[in-house]
Amino acid sequence: MTLHPLPTPPDTADTHDEWNLRARGETPTQRLDRNYGELLQEVRVAQTGVQFLLAFLLALAFTPRFADITEFQRGTYVASLIMGAAATALLIAPAPFHRLVFQRRLKRKLVRATGWFTLAGLGFLMLALGSSMLLILDVVLGTRSAVWISGGILAWFLTWWFAVPLWNRHRFGHRPSLPAQPDSR
């Protein structure tokens, strides 16, 4: 029985490309196309949520009871609206970025930028959801309860959207896959 040393974890695009070619039979261009497609699928999921949230927030200002909200509620509303708009801009940003760099051989830059747009957009979406919950809970339960519950909701989002994936990335992301068993993604 011959033991083969495990490969070192890839640290650069070139070593990722080498690994993908060996393990998946995928060229660097095919890898970028696949990565971009996967990112767009992620963005589509988030865009639906942010569009519903922003529509709710935009309509809220035109309800009869809106004139009676407190200064705290008005500030929370404005913060929610701005963060929802920021999330929308970032989650839509891959489309105009792609259009403006189309056929310029900038796919690697497009994939990297789309990844950052998506992460930042999800961060703003999380904050917009948290502040929207704060606004609604303040109206329904009062400020003290609203702050505690909204803080819990933000912690919940932080846990599942960022902490758990980052923990898995840290814990398992640097372990090399066996050459015969590439990542199943």
Rank of each mutant, 00 (worst) to 15 (best):
T29A: 13
D33T: 10
R34M: 11
E38A: 14
L39P: 02
Q41N: 10
V45A: 08
Q47V: 08
Q47D: 10
T48H: 12
Q51L: 14
F52E: 08
F52P: 02
L53A: 02
L54Q: 03
A59I: 09
A61S: 13
F62E: 11
P64L: 07
F66S: 01
A67I: 12
A67W: 15
I69N: 01
T70Y: 06
E71Y: 12
E71I: 12
E71Q: 12
E71H: 11
F72L: 13
F72R: 14
G75T: 11
G75H: 13
T76A: 10
T76N: 04
T76S: 07
V78W: 07
A79P: 03
A79L: 10
A79W: 05
S80P: 03
L81C: 00
M83S: 14
G84Y: 06
G84W: 00
A86L: 13
A87R: 00
L90G: 02
A93W: 01
P94N: 06
A95M: 13
F97I: 09
H98V: 06
R104D: 11
R104K: 14
R105D: 15
L106I: 10
L106D: 09
K107I: 13
R108E: 14
V111W: 02
T114L: 07
W116Y: 15
F117N: 02
F117C: 01
F117W: 06
L119D: 07
A120E: 07
G121M: 01
G123W: 03
G123F: 13
F124M: 04
L125P: 05
L129F: 14
G130L: 02
M133T: 10
I136N: 00
L137E: 06
D138I: 00
D138H: 09
V140A: 09
T143I: 12
S145H: 13
S145T: 09
S145Y: 12
A146I: 05
W148I: 09
W148H: 10
I149S: 04
S150N: 04
S150C: 03
G151H: 11
L154D: 04
A155H: 07
